[in-house]
Amino acid sequence: MPSPAPDTTVLAVHRDREHRFGKCRVGAIELQAGLGVVDDAHWGRKVQHRSRVKADPEQPNLRQVHLISAALFAHLETLGFAVGPGQLGENISLADAPGLGWRELIALPTGTRLHFAQGPVVELTGLRNPCAQIDHFQPGLLAAMLERMADGRLIRKTGVMGVVLQGGRIQPHDALRLELPPAPQRVLERV
């Protein structure tokens, strides 16, 4: 039986039909199973991220939905950066919740399922890797989004990626329940 995980709510939702750095805040997003966020540039069964399409356009799309904890914005503020919901290109900004800050979000295991109040289910596939474009948004932000642990492992703070298992609507203030996968669990890797 999976151990219980903290729950939270949705702070804001975003989408953009174009491949731009940030995404536009909207009142609600619609998810489609196996495809992602309707009317978003990353919607589709096959990879949509431009650099990944160049490498192999036939790869499955493991980056249908991007999620970030609002606790990351507060963390970045302590480092001298002003970043808000949607500005890092996420589809879903999660409200800061006890036990589910930015560190806990990126530490969830692969296969964690996020059950949203109105029915959508997103399964985590990996970590978002920050790219050099982030320094065009705010100089020095790329370095702030990466951290080395004492053992040399790299921490990527830019949130998690997932695929849509069950479609439906998501909007601000929707509750979210996490379901951890059974053991053995695998750490999220860059996707």
Rank of each mutant, 00 (worst) to 15 (best):
L67A: 05
D174E: 07
L11P: 00
E189L: 10
A95D: 13
V163I: 15
L154V: 13
A95G: 11
P184L: 03
K46H: 15
L127Y: 01
G126D: 05
G168R: 11
P4M: 01
H136W: 04
A55H: 11
V187Y: 00
S51T: 13
L94E: 14
L108W: 10
V160T: 14
I134V: 14
D40W: 12
K157A: 10
R113C: 10
G101T: 09
R186A: 04
P57Q: 06
I170H: 09
F73S: 05
D16P: 01
H49A: 14
P120Y: 04
V121D: 03
A71D: 14
Q32L: 12
G80V: 05
L176K: 07
A132P: 00
Q171A: 15
R20D: 08
R25N: 07
F81L: 03
Q166V: 11
Q32T: 14
H66S: 12
T110C: 13
N129V: 12
P57E: 07
P98A: 07
V53Q: 14
R20C: 07
E147G: 01
L100M: 10
G162N: 09
L31G: 05
I68W: 05
I170F: 07
D56Y: 06
R17I: 09
A33E: 13
D39G: 09
L67D: 04
G22T: 08
D151Y: 10
V122G: 04
T112C: 06
N91Q: 14
A183F: 02
E18I: 08
Q171R: 15
G86H: 11
R20L: 11
H75S: 03
E30C: 11
V191W: 05
R148P: 00
P60I: 02
M161L: 15
L146R: 14
F81G: 04
P181N: 01
V83I: 14
V122C: 03
R15C: 09
H136S: 10
I106G: 07
R177K: 12
A183G: 00
V26W: 08
R52W: 12
I170G: 09
S93Y: 15
A71N: 03
G101P: 07
F21N: 04
N61I: 06
A150T: 12
K157E: 08
P2K: 02
G162Y: 12
L62T: 08
T110L: 14
G162I: 10
P4K: 01
Q185F: 00
R15D: 03
L94N: 13
Q118P: 01
G22D: 11
G89T: 13
V13P: 03
R186M: 02
R169W: 11
P109I: 02
A95S: 15
Q32Y: 08
T9E: 07
T78S: 06
G101D: 08
I134F: 03
K54W: 08
F116P: 04
A12G: 04
L127N: 01
G126E: 05
H75G: 00
I92A: 12
W43H: 15
M145K: 08
G36D: 10
N91Y: 14
T112L: 06
Q48D: 09
R153W: 04
Q171V: 12
